[in-house]
Design a protein around this nucleic acid. Structure first.
Lengths: 131, 131, 131, 131
DNA sequence: GTGGTCTAGACCACT
DNA sequence: GTGGTCTAGACCACG
């Protein structure tokens, strides 16, 4: 898993970690039983304060997608993939919904909104291919 | 102009006011030379503290879309409509872009993303018609 | 007397009127016994709210440089020229002092400050001749 | 950095803080990468309310000379010194220009103005040495 | 009536 | 600890 942390995003770092782990599990990149990196290790690779990583893990544990294995570390739970796939869809849908709701409230003509959406959709897919 | 404030949104209230006024000017609801509602008046209708409205107005003034007329109120500037139309498009596009970027990073298949977008687009347009 | 009102200056309009009248008297443009324009008249020529002119006159009266003459208007007092010349020097000196004090606190090298002063002095004198 | 706040100046306190920080960066007293004093700390030393300091910092952030580091404080940006040096000169020049413009409009003879300027220049430099 | 500034103090999220 | 937002209410200058 490669994490992309954007420290200056308005989205808190711990939350970025949470969603990226969630996405990682949902897409099968992290399988049940896998030990995820330790707080210290991840903090070092992401250049982030350990407390921040710890908070993200705490949140993930609360959601039941990872569980502490005494003396070994934190492990992806068996129920995680199903849960994360649902979470992922909820998160993505929620963000899209919010964006489009705002677009509607802006009184921009519907066709203009659609145009913007198509442009950005193409843009994102273009980047995806390039990667 | 009808303003919709959501006090529990993660977006600060003063910022919501800023974008709504911007949208109002962009859509022609507020014309140059018009005095926008006074701080106290708007505070009362939105049920927020006058300071919060004042902060939004300061931001709008800084952007040059309204100008304080001492002792009278705040006036929409002549350049405001053009600026706000550009701002509106930037804001809406930015939010859509962020949502789709996250969708892409979620490793959701592109067709699933498009499906979600279509669903939400239909949903929003439905609401619009119903109003 | 020609008044230059700058409505968007940070200096209040009524104060602009006060200092301009003061300067007018100091320079001999307005002599003792002269009737100054009525509130209404001046408000109209300056495109300013009558209240604002009234407040300026009130201030001038308080300073004793003009006095109400029942049924006729407001008149420049005999003591005014001397007082205004002193006032004028105090005002100008005060402003210069403030500007230079700030320059000093900025840690700009003294020679740079002097250079700026010379440039602006030349600039102002240039404009003066052109008028 | 030593800040001098004059609570009774017509210039708002938050603005005094902004210009003093700007001057501090321009003169090299605050270097890029440095954390500036925290809101609470500065509020305590200046004997003003934290909100007032926060407002100044927001303004500085908007100008791009400092950047918030979440949970740590506010950092001087790499571009700040150049920007602040330009700002400083603009501020000082602007104030001098205003003072001299008023002097010119006062119809004080040019030589009298120059005399005042020299007196005040000497005065300020005298104080500077004494410090 | 208008906007602008300031103090006061609460609450929150982040590190 | 850090900054950010908000409510509350005072006071001021201006028109």
């Amino acid at each position: 898993m490669i994490f992309q942390i954007r420290p200056d995003s308005p989205i808190p770092i711990y939350e970025q970690i949470v969603t990226q782990v969630t996405f990682g599990i949902a897409s099968g990149g992290l399988e049940p039983g896998t030990l995820i990196p330790s707080v210290r290790e991840l903090a070092q690779t992401l250049l982030v304060h350990p407390n921040t990583v710890a908070r993200a893990f705490q949140e993930l544990e609360r959601q039941g997608v990872v569980a502490a294995r005494r003396g070994r570390g934190m492990e992806v739970t068996p129920e995680a993939p199903a849960a994360c796939q649902k979470l992922r869809q909820d998160i993505v849908r929620g963000r899209i919904r919010e964006a489009l709701r705002e677009a509607a409230s802006s009184a921009l003509p519907a066709e203009d909104v659609r145009l913007l959406v198509e442009e950005e959709l193409a843009r994102v897919n273009g980047q995806r291919r390039r990667k």
